[in-house]
Design a protein around this nucleic acid. Structure first.
Lengths: 332, 332
DNA sequence: CACACTTTTGGAATCGATTCCAAACATTCC
DNA sequence: GGAATGTTTGGAATCGATTCCAAAAGTGTG
């Protein structure tokens, strides 16, 4: 049994295709009686308008796509929830796809915007170079969230990563940190900004730059452990470590503990993101909370403006406030 | 500047639309010279075929959609990676959307299959009733993964949850567990199966059913803690707890430790999934490893068969082998 | 009952890419 | 040279829903 079309419905209901379409689109110019006939026919044939035909004619899909390196990150999945809720309110369906940091796959997904498979794009963690993102965002309906290039022209929604790193580093110093270390990730935009904030805070406190340790790698648990092992091999030992994510911080705490040292008494540790890992860790982690859901919501609003008012290419970034969450991993 | 169409490309290249289309689809019946002219025109106009027009004519989209309650679960995100890799090999783009356990949202997403927005659907954790899933899967290109109804007719790819729970419970008994408890989740299909395996193993070992504790709730860290608090209020205390997920198990271990008891000496704890949390936990968790990536790959293969050979509605489930991973949380 | 007006309807044109058919063109071989 | 064959091309028809225009049906008024 092949798919039913408007034509079939029209024939069964004894009206014209125009009338069927008007019923489908809730046009007011339809009499009660034909509305009923059409609805009956639709039910009888189990009819569903074909998306591609409708999209072609309407020149929009009411779908948006979000891209992220991976979907595991609690900040991203929470932000995407915000995107989804906001999108639903405006009648949009939101989908997401992981790029796995693969440029080719990312391109293929971005092509879905270019070829009209979706109306808009939200980028959480682009793999392509900053300039490409920037250029794309200038001519297409694209909004960046979380990971945004450190440039004047860049735009999107995020917290102020530099300031957040500055704040938490200062907290480490205020609680007695003198020999600071950071586990970062220069491959990520936000990672570079966090390193910047970290160095600025240390600088402001008059700590000697050559005394500071910095190691980097991916933001996962095992990386956190192995990079911490490196830190523990240096002498004198650091007394406070700022990690670029809670997961890394959990690895860091674990490695320190396994080495027979105590957190925070011997070494204080701070994370980033306030994910559930921060609470699972023993001791619980001091970290930075991002208003992820709200970031997602705002990102969709921005995207909606770009999609519906063509040519609206509002410049500028929206910074949302972060929050320093102090827990036992830095409380001596 | 409006979007360029095949017509525009044809005009610019000085050929017919037929030829342009043939170049786009790499038909061999095109001369070198027109191929070059067309490609030059495409570049000059920055032309991209419109997806909706193509999809309409071809009657397929080369896109599939996966649905899950949430994207955070490590098993789901790993399985989806398998889906994505397999899909890419066959030229399909795979997208995913969270339903948040909301029936209406799930319906809306399932409609994307019904209205031809995508060619196939992969369901990780359906919210709709089993019968609806079953009916849908019988007439549409749908494959279930991970969470599959416990019925003869059900089909899809997963591990044998009942057997896995049986195995890990027997391990708890073999390592000295006599007063068993389980933290489960009857709302999930796999949760019900795991409870079944748990009870069967206890039964086989001759443990008195009225001695066994069972509490249930969502599979998250805080639920794990509060449900464990309930268990610790009972007397005599359980000496082994099987948790339906690693995250819950982490909460369980934490609560036990905070109460001044030791894991595994006083109470052994086992998890499920072998997610990164199992290794983050102290002590590290005994758990069940699922071949999630492979499950995703196979699920796509199955879906592909359903999509391309219409009417192929292969019954039956594919069970993949699980693995008991023993770590310190049960090693006395 | 004729007129002006509004409401409702039918149906052709449209969106943009693909595909089929017939025609044009090129090549080979006797 | 011309028949026979193969290669390449143009262009109309097609996919299915929407929308516009003109026509038909309905309503109210004097």
């Amino acid at each position: 049994m092949a798919r039913a079309t408007v034509q079939d419905v029209a024939k069964t209901a004894g009206v014209s295709v125009g009338t069927v379409s008007r019923v489908l689109n809730k046009s007011p110019a339809v009499s009660e009686s034909s509305k009923e006939k059409v609805n009956a026919a639709i039910r009888r044939l189990n009819y569903r308008p074909l998306a591609s035909a409708r999209d072609l004619r309407r020149d929009r899909t009411m779908r948006i796509l979000a891209l992220a390196k991976n979907l595991n990150s609690p900040v991203i999945s929470e932000a995407f929830r915000g995107v989804g809720d906001a999108a639903a309110l405006s009648g949009y369906v939101s989908l997401i796809a992981p790029t796995a940091g693969d440029l080719e796959r990312e391109q293929q997904l971005v092509d879905m915007l270019r070829n009209g498979s979706v109306d808009g794009l939200i980028m959480f963690s682009p793999t392509m170079p900053d300039d490409d993102v920037q250029e794309m965002a200038e001519q297409l309906s694209v909004v960046q969230v979380c990971e945004i290039a450190d440039s004047e022209a860049a735009f999107g929604v995020s917290i102020d990563d530099r300031q957040a790193a500055f704040d938490i580093t200062r907290h480490l110093i205020e609680t007695g940190g003198r020999r600071l270390a950071m586990i970062g990730n220069r491959a990520a935009r936000s990672g570079r900004l966090r390193e910047k904030g970290f160095r600025e805070a240390a600088d402001e406190a008059g700590l000697a730059p050559e005394q500071m340790l910095f190691v980097e790698g991916e933001f996962d648990f095992h990386t956190g452990r192995s990079l911490t092992r490196k830190l523990l091999a240096s002498a004198p030992l650091p007394d406070a470590v700022f990690c670029g994510s809670d997961t890394v911080a959990a690895g860091c705490v674990r490695e320190i503990t396994d080495a027979g040292l105590r957190v925070p008494d011997d070494i204080a540790v701070a994370g980033f993101d306030d994910s559930v890992q921060a609470e699972m860790c023993v001791p619980e982690l001091t970290t930075i909370r991002q208003p992820a859901y709200e970031m997602g919501r705002l990102a969709f609003e921005e995207l909606l403006a770009r999609m519906t008012v063509p040519g609206v290419h509002r410049r500028g970034r929206t910074f949302l406030p972060h929050e320093l969450v102090v827990r036992d991993s830095t409380r001596k």
